[in-house]
């Protein structure tokens, strides 16, 4: 065994985490509040839709996914006081009106014939935006100071990828004609436009900027 009293580096040679991060405590809390709001809206609508879809496999997936997003909301709810926000409700808000309108449009379909719209809204628009917002956050936050947020995001991303796959595959089983494909893409476009206006789940800058300054 190596000499236990010999001086060692606090960071092992394979541990490449760095101190700098793009978000300070306040900005992190702001983003986390928006994540919580969005996860809440998602688990609520998934729960509401269960009774409205006749397809039994879809019904069961919605029920399962509903819980996962509620759990994500709970993780963010518990993180907020750790980020100096003692009243988590204060930050549990939409980033802007466009995001509120996006949720209203996402939630609108009710009829039993509208399973395509329901699933497209969640699995082709909302969840892909969650994946990008969380990925951006994970890759840009301080890997050392914001360890707890990173850890939660890693758990959450695992769920998002699993559920996205489930949802996308269900959609593929429902799209059997060119007309249905058109329906799906039109609804997707309608929602995507609202999310562009909102700037993403956490508002403008949700996934940073891709352009050279």
């Amino acid at each position: 065994m190596a000499d236990p009293f010999k001086a060692r580096n606090p960071f092992a040679p394979w541990d490449r985490r760095e101190l700098p991060g793009m978000f300070d405590v306040e900005e992190t809390a702001r983003r986390v509040g928006h994540y919580k709001w969005a996860e809440m809206k998602l688990f609520e609508v998934l729960g509401g839709w269960i009774a409205t879809v006749p397809e039994i496999d879809v019904k069961l997936r919605l029920g399962t996914h509903c819980y996962k997003h509620a759990w994500h909301a709970e993780l963010w709810h518990n993180r907020l006081p750790e980020l100096r926000e003692m009243n988590p409700e204060r930050l549990t808000v939409a980033p802007n009106d466009a995001m509120v309108r996006f949720i209203a449009a996402l939630t609108e379909p009710e009829a039993p014939e509208m399973t395509i719209e329901k699933l497209v809204g969640v699995y082709r628009v909302f969840i892909p935006h969650f994946i990008s917002a969380y990925t951006f956050h994970l890759n840009n936050t301080s890997q050392i100071t914001d360890g707890p947020t990173s850890r939660s995001i890693k758990f959450i991303l695992q769920d998002e990828f699993d559920d996205w796959r489930d949802g996308e595959m269900l959609i593929q089983t429902l799209l059997t004609t060119p007309a249905e494909v058109k329906r799906a893409s039109e609804h997707q476009a309608r929602l995507e436009i609202l999310l562009i206006e909102a700037g993403g789940i956490a508002g403008p800058g949700t996934i940073g900027s891709a352009f050279a300054e």
Partner: peptide, 20 residues
């Protein structure tokens, strides 16, 4: 309450398993 809704969401998952 938020926590009540979390319980209901958890119940959704449980009941979905029960259906399965």
């Amino acid at each position: 309450p938020f926590a009540l809704k979390l319980d209901m969401a958890r119940q959704c998952w449980d009941e979905a398993r029960h259906v399965e």
